[in-house]
Simulated scan of single mutants.
Amino acid sequence: MSTTTLKLPDDLKERIAAVAADAGKTPHAFMVDALAAQTALAERRRAFVDAAVRAEQDVAEYGVVYDADAVFCYLQDTLAGKRARRPKAVKL
C-alpha cells in the first residue's frame, strides 16, 4: 500500500472528521471509502459512455434501431407474464 498526502482546507477536514465520527469510522477510513466510491462511480460512468458510443457507431454502420416504446411495452408484458410480441428492428 502506498501513501498519498492530501492537503485539505481546514473546514473540509473538520466536516470529514464529524461525519466520519457519526459513521463510526476514522477520517482516514472515511476518505478511503469516499475515494473508492467515487472511483467506482467514475468507472461505471465511463463504461456507460463507452457502451453508448459503441451503440451509436453500430447504428451509424448498420442503421438498425428499435422503438423504445415498443421495447418498453414488450418488457412490461413479459415481466407481467403476458404473451408479448417481440419488437421489430427498424432500418433508418
Results as ranks from 00 to 15, higher is better:
residue 2 S to K: 13
residue 3 T to V: 13
residue 3 T to M: 12
residue 3 T to H: 13
residue 4 T to V: 13
residue 5 T to A: 07
residue 9 P to E: 02
residue 10 D to V: 09
residue 10 D to I: 06
residue 10 D to A: 07
residue 11 D to G: 00
residue 12 L to F: 10
residue 13 K to D: 11
residue 14 E to H: 02
residue 14 E to C: 03
residue 15 R to F: 08
residue 17 A to N: 09
residue 17 A to V: 06
residue 19 V to K: 07
residue 19 V to A: 00
residue 21 A to K: 10
residue 23 A to R: 11
residue 25 K to E: 09
residue 26 T to L: 02
residue 26 T to N: 02
residue 27 P to D: 05
residue 27 P to R: 11
residue 28 H to Y: 07
residue 28 H to N: 11
residue 31 M to L: 14
residue 32 V to N: 10
residue 32 V to Q: 14
residue 33 D to K: 08
residue 34 A to K: 10
residue 37 A to Q: 14
residue 37 A to Y: 09
residue 37 A to W: 04
residue 41 L to A: 04
residue 43 E to M: 09
residue 44 R to S: 13
residue 45 R to M: 12
residue 47 A to H: 10
residue 47 A to E: 15
residue 47 A to K: 14
residue 48 F to A: 14
residue 49 V to L: 12
residue 51 A to V: 02
residue 51 A to Q: 03
residue 51 A to R: 09
residue 52 A to C: 13
residue 53 V to L: 09
residue 54 R to P: 07
residue 54 R to D: 15
residue 54 R to Q: 11
residue 57 Q to M: 04
residue 58 D to K: 05
residue 59 V to F: 05
residue 61 E to Q: 13
residue 62 Y to M: 00
residue 62 Y to G: 05
residue 63 G to F: 06
residue 63 G to I: 09
residue 64 V to N: 06
residue 64 V to Y: 02
residue 64 V to C: 10
residue 65 V to E: 00
residue 65 V to P: 05
residue 66 Y to T: 15
residue 66 Y to G: 15
residue 67 D to L: 13
residue 67 D to H: 01
residue 67 D to F: 00
residue 67 D to Q: 06
residue 68 A to I: 03
residue 68 A to V: 14
residue 70 A to K: 12
residue 70 A to Y: 01
residue 71 V to T: 02
residue 73 C to R: 01
residue 75 L to A: 07
residue 76 Q to S: 00
residue 77 D to F: 08
residue 78 T to D: 02
residue 79 L to M: 07
residue 79 L to T: 10
residue 79 L to C: 06
residue 80 A to R: 13
residue 81 G to P: 07
residue 81 G to F: 02
residue 83 R to A: 09
residue 84 A to W: 01
residue 85 R to V: 10
residue 86 R to M: 12
residue 89 A to Q: 11
residue 89 A to Y: 05
residue 89 A to S: 05
residue 90 V to K: 03
residue 90 V to Y: 01
